[in-house]
Amino acid sequence: MAGGSKAAVYSAIGANTFVMVAKFVGFALTGSGTMLAEGIHSMADVGNQSLLAVGMSRAQLPPTPEHPYGYGRDAFVWALMSAVGIFFLGCGVTVAHGVQSLIVGGHHDATSAPWINLGILALSLVAEGASLYIAVRALQKQAKAQGLSLREHIRTTDDVFGVAVLLEDSAAVVGVILAFITVWLTHLTHAPYWDPIGSLLIGALLGGVALVLMRRNRALLIGQSVRPEELQRMNEIFRNDPVVEDVVMARAVVEGADAYHIAAEIDFDGRVLARRHLDGRDLDALARELDSGEKLMAFLEEFGDAVTDQVGEEVDRLEARIREVFPRARHVDLEPD
């Protein structure tokens, strides 16, 4: 797990805890539905990012007899739970409050000025922006290491924690801006409908983020393939090896937030293996030695055993080569066809 993603998750928990308390204080002082929506938004973020932290810890557990490939995919389970929490707690509660507020006529802050809420929102914007910056920087470092643009990396990465924090913090920043606008419009126009509209917009924003994250984690949880370029590179390694005659089947799926599971069935070239085994031996002298059925049978038994051992050595060599090219290949299963 990239250290940058851990830093992004824990910094997001700290920032959202701070702004959550501040937003609920603003709601308690003014009764603003927008502030309540933002408070619920931040509370959902704290809870969901705490789930991400649990998932990060669980995904690092070592393999056991019951789970021989480890707990890498547990990361996707907890990230999916986090996304569902955003949808039902963040989006659902916020939209329900906005609809209820519209039905009863909206809300208008009767205080002389909206400075309490605006000040809290400005402070929240700084905290949320700092957390977003940390998340972006972490993903930028990962993208640079893989030679990808930030956009392409975000689209294809299996670092569900970094992407989740990026989307949640982006939604938090946009949500604060929406809340700032609706609080200010409520004060300027004295119209009660701006406040519930702000709640509905924030709820819709959270719902969109949740759906994107749920779709992403579902694909990873059921076994998403690695990027096509990586799969092509893997096949090139096999096909360009002199002992490989054909690649019958090759698959590579994401096994965790930083792990691949690669499996392939390889048709080894028996002629190459035979030549390597017999290299340096005088074949004419060998032919003269095999002057009886008993000697021929003994040679064939020895030859078959040696070639079988050689196939095992070639499998080990190819697996090592795959791990060298793909450091994230935690599990490599190659089988002779």
Rank of each mutant, 00 (worst) to 15 (best):
V183P: 06
L166N: 07
A252Q: 09
D169I: 05
V173W: 05
L185D: 04
I202L: 02
H190E: 10
R233Q: 15
V209P: 03
V244S: 14
R251H: 13
V163W: 06
V244A: 09
R233A: 15
A191H: 12
F180L: 11
L167E: 01
D169F: 03
W184S: 12
V174Y: 07
G207E: 09
D169N: 15
R218E: 02
G162V: 10
V212A: 13
T189V: 03
I222K: 08
R233E: 14
E229G: 14
L221D: 07
E245Y: 12
D195E: 05
G207R: 10
V183F: 03
Q224S: 12
V165A: 09
L167Y: 15
L185Q: 13
I202A: 04
D195T: 03
N235F: 00
V244D: 13
L201I: 13
L167G: 04
G208R: 06
R251E: 12
R227F: 05
E229L: 12
E168N: 10
V244M: 13
L167K: 09
R216W: 04
D246G: 01
I237W: 09
M214E: 14
V160H: 04
V174H: 05
T186H: 08
A191W: 13
D246N: 15
H187K: 02
A179G: 15
V160F: 03
P196Q: 04
P196T: 03
V248I: 14
P228K: 03
L220P: 01
S170V: 01
V163G: 04
G223A: 05
I202Q: 03
R239G: 01
V253K: 04
W184I: 00
P196M: 01
A171P: 07
M249S: 13
R227A: 12
H190Q: 13
F180Q: 04
L206R: 06
A210D: 06
N217S: 12
I222D: 08
A250W: 05
N235T: 07
T186Y: 00
P242W: 10
P196G: 02
V173C: 12
S170Q: 02
M234T: 02
L213W: 05
R251M: 09
V209F: 03
N217I: 10
G223V: 05
V212K: 11
N240S: 15
D241P: 06
H187I: 00
R218I: 15
V253E: 03
I237C: 06
F180E: 00
E230H: 11
L221Y: 09
I181V: 15
D159L: 03
A172L: 13
T189L: 01
L221S: 10
I222Y: 09
A171I: 07
E229C: 07
R215E: 07
E236D: 14
A172V: 11
D169P: 07
A172P: 10
G162L: 08
A204G: 10
V247K: 06
V173S: 08
I177K: 07
Q232I: 05
E245T: 02
V254D: 04
T182D: 00
H187G: 01
G208N: 13
L166R: 09
V248Y: 11
V244R: 14
